[in-house]
Every structure is written in C-alpha cells, then in structure tokens.
Design a protein around this nucleic acid. Structure first.
Lengths: 145, 145
DNA sequence: TATTGTTATACTCTATAACTATA
DNA sequence: TATAGTTATAGAGTATAACAATA
C-alpha cells in the first residue's frame, strides 16, 4: 500500500472547525460574547427551561465550567435563572427577549460568514455537503445520549 | 427572523472531529502512538526532509511542543534526526522504513473506521462530502501559509 | 543580529474534590 | 442517601521567555 488517497477525516474536520471558530471570534467580540457565552445562548433554545447540569451536558461542558458564564449572562440580563418552586435546588434557565435577540443576531452574522466560505462549492456539492455533515453530526450526537 | 435553519458549521465540524479523534485513540494506542506522535509521522510525508521548526509549523504545533514527541519517535527508531551538514543548527527529519510502515498501518485502520461512519451516507453524497470537505480544508490551509 | 533547537517557566483551560442546601 | 449548584484545588495542555550553538 503506497499512501492514503485522502487525508484522515479528523485531520480535515478539526482544523477546518478551528479555523472557522477563530474567524468567528471577532463577531462574538463585537457582541461582547465569549465562545462559551454564545454556546450557552444557543443551548437555551426556544423551549423555556433546563437545569444547569442538563444544559452543561447538552453543550458538552462540565457543570462547573459554565457557572461563571451563566453569572455574566444573567448579570447582563440575557438569561433568567429562576429557582424552581417545585425543587428549590434547581434553577430554571431561559433566554430573555434581549438574549434571544442577541443570539439571533450573532448567529446570523456567523452563518453569513460561513456561507461565504461555502460559496466556493458548486451548488449541488454545497447542499450535499450540508446534508451529509448534518447526518454525520446527528449520528455522533445521538450516540452520546 | 425566527431561528437558524441549520446549526453553525463550526458547531457541527468540531464535535464531529473530536468524536472521530476520540474513537480513533484506541487504534493509536494499539500502535503505542500518541495523537501528536501520529500527527508527526503524517507530517513527515514521503518527501525526505524538514527542519523541526518547519515541521511544527506544518502540523500546527509549537516548535517546543514536538520536541518530546520527536525524542520518543527517534528513540523507537521510527524517525531519523540527522544534523544537516550544511547548517549545523538544523536537524533533517525523515521517516525510517519502520516509521513509514507503522504510519501506513495506523492510517489504514483509522480510515477503515472512518469509512464505516461514511457508509451511512448515500454514495453520491459521500463523494460530494469528501470532495467538498477537501476543498474547504485546502482553502483554509492555503490561507495560513 | 537572526535562527535552530532546547529547557524552564507561566498561563489557560478543564476536570476533580469538597462543601451547602435541598430532596 | 442522593442531587443541584457552588467554590477551591489540582491537573493537562499550551504558549512564552530565556539560553547555547551556529549562521
């Protein structure tokens, strides 16, 4: 066997993902968001609630990791952290309208940038790429739960 | 604007890449290779030479980061680190036949695993995905140099 | 003066352990 | 006893600074 015909998948996916994340940092900075702050806003979808531990698990972070992030987002009134009347240990997390707006704006700008990169692909490849990436990503996300 | 129609690219690429890398760790372990050890072996392509700084840059590592890795690979006779007679500061790096064999075996096993994941895609999507990923990855790699 | 390889140090990020308040 | 949230601590990984040898 002479040599591989293609680079390893991980050797393409990870550098590409990191390059994108780095390129998107200035967008987040303009909105005073850290990467984790943005991920938390995304993690708090449109469905109202969560507990901190569940949110942490959903976004792949340690529960201790996100505490400072939640503190700051709450302080900026982007999220609410209401004690659950049914279980006073738990905090119900939700986006405020301001948080939702900020999240949607940041995401729109980020995906705009990403679309510029995707524009170099032929239209057919582009849709196949997005469809495939989504399939593969879903399959490993399922696997985790 | 209600909500994004797709997840962010980086939010799919990075978890997918990490999941693959994690799944491939046992393969590397069987060959007594660390992730960086494997990356170094891959970085020393079939072309004979390099200098440590150039290799580090090529694989996206700090030059100080790979010294221990090179030490171990050399000790196991997987690479050679010959002083350059023309410039005695520099070390010419190359794979030994054993290093090349090990690299090719590990890569074959890794890509076999990756192919299993890709098998869930329809054939047409699969080729379009690989072609597109390669295009995007090349474009960001070019950008760096 | 600049560069290669190296070591030692500092810094960032993340995970672990230990605590409180609830259940 | 077990769990949610928290704090403090320890660890892994990485980058920075400083050095000797060479150009």
């Amino acid at each position: 066997m002479p040599h591989a015909q293609r680079p390893d998948l991980a050797a393409m996916l990870l550098p590409l993902g990191r390059a994108l994340a780095t390129a998107e940092l200035p967008v987040l900075e303009r909105h005073d968001l850290s990467m984790w702050g943005y991920v938390v806003l995304l993690g708090l979808g449109d469905e109202p609630v969560y507990t901190q531990a569940a949110l942490a698990k959903a976004i792949g972070a340690d529960k201790t990791r996100i505490i400072g992030v939640l503190d700051e987002l709450q302080h900026r009134a982007l999220i609410r952290r209401d004690p659950d009347p049914a279980d006073r240990r738990a905090r119900l997390l939700s986006l405020t309208p301001a948080g939702r707006t900020l999240r949607d704006r940041a995401q729109a700008e980020i995906q705009e940038k990403e679309n510029l990169l995707l524009d170099q692909l032929p239209a057919a490849d582009r849709t196949a790429f997005l469809r495939s990436l989504h399939t593969l990503w879903s399959s490993i996300a399922d696997q985790k739960s």
